[in-house]
Design a protein around this nucleic acid. Sequence first.
DNA 1: CAGTGGTCTAGACCACACT
DNA 2: GTGTGGTCTAGACCACTGC
Lengths: 263, 263
Amino acid sequence: MSSNPSVPSEPSPLTGEPAASVTPAFSPLYQQIKSLILQSLQAGEWKPGEAIPSEMELAARYRVSQGTVRKAIDELAAENLVQRRQGKGTFVATHAERQVQYRFLKLIPDTGDVNSEGPAERRIVDCRRQRASADVARALGLRTGDPVLQVGRVLSFAGTPTILEDLWLPGGPFKGLTADRLSEHRGPMYAMFESEFGVRMVRAEEKIRAVLPDPNQSTLLRVPAGTPLLSVERVAYTYNDVPMELRRGLYHTATHHYRNELS
Amino acid sequence: MSSNPSVPSEPSPLTGEPAASVTPAFSPLYQQIKSLILQSLQAGEWKPGEAIPSEMELAARYRVSQGTVRKAIDELAAENLVQRRQGKGTFVATHAERQVQYRFLKLIPDTGDVNSEGPAERRIVDCRRQRASADVARALGLRTGDPVLQVGRVLSFAGTPTILEDLWLPGGPFKGLTADRLSEHRGPMYAMFESEFGVRMVRAEEKIRAVLPDPNQSTLLRVPAGTPLLSVERVAYTYNDVPMELRRGLYHTATHHYRNELS
DNA sequence: CAGTGGTCTAGACCACACT
DNA sequence: GTGTGGTCTAGACCACTGC
């Protein structure tokens, strides 16, 4: 292959970047291929659940060897952006698959049997457009006062209210989202975000604390005042680390716990 | 290379396994190499912080190509068992390095500035040998009544008690551990486990809940009764998923939070 | 059967660290 | 310069899927 920070483009997607600084640092070919694939994913060239072109096709398209494409895809697979299936192809990851549903929900029943209690029962408490407060704006990368959608809901397991959460979504990308559409959909909310709004959550950060509920919260969760609850603040990101959701949850951990793996 | 589930051994470490069932499922060469390296790590052939042989050397030792060794090491590096350093070599991971100290501690100050408060001040509350209760035994893979070491301690940040935790360690591997040796050591406890007892924690699982302290706990943490606290129960594992520590922590989350990344 | 991802090899060259 | 890990290639073959 030829020299460095240029990669042979095909229909020439060439994203500007006139190399303002001196020698823009070394970037391996496979990283360049990776970002090209990433751009296609981001642009929606292949939809969630669909197969992307085969390694050979991509190798031909980008004029590199199959091994180089393979390494690029390996990294995308490691980041859960695509999913490889031997003999079938490589598929754009989605929150709609049975196996990985509720990928970001780490609260599980103490029995460990995730399926024993069936799917969560969801109730939308409220859903309204409003102007972003300072902290919501900061978390979503907006300006204070920008339009946001605020949603409150309760999740119940086996009839017991267990999670109370508030969501804030940027008004722009989620234009047209209403309480009705939220109530109607089946399956994970993030799956609906993909199919209805083309927004794919690929990564999230959570800050966890122990708190006490205020009177309103203890009513909704049907727990006594003074019951300790897990406060989980999540910021979820689409491609390129763009924040797309702020979520503040209260988890009742009497019969469930938050599970985490460290390595 | 030759046929499958046999790999050319060198000084013949050949770990039994007479293949009891029919066709022991396909296992790629690099996976076999990986487990051979894993055995050497486990046996202490290379100590934490030391370099393992170069890829070329390992390739010669196992009679495979460098690429195959590379893929084996890639996986070990992804699991944080070894660390690659370009131009220098591949090193056995350790809890003693500056960068990854407290790798398993996810509680960080709300300011986000991990270094602003300096190192934690540690106080051993108690340390005694006892017999494993049923639940401790189960978590550590022991039998009820087996000897275990129980340690209680308080961690303070900037003079404020923030973490109260109890540890249970299997009596066998940690023979000779005393309150004095615990108090004397500097740096992470897991680093001392490596250097003093040859026990390397490579992985852990945590179960998190919100709880209220009992009177004794609220005294030690200097918080009022009724203060919600994070309960973090951790089981830490050495190689081959052998549990080596049970740890029950109470985190005061007024000025700190538990941070988690999802993907 | 053909097509896909997965493994393995051998060789060339690059980037980095030490000496 | 030498040795290390890191990248890239080209080609062969294997395992899995679906027609």
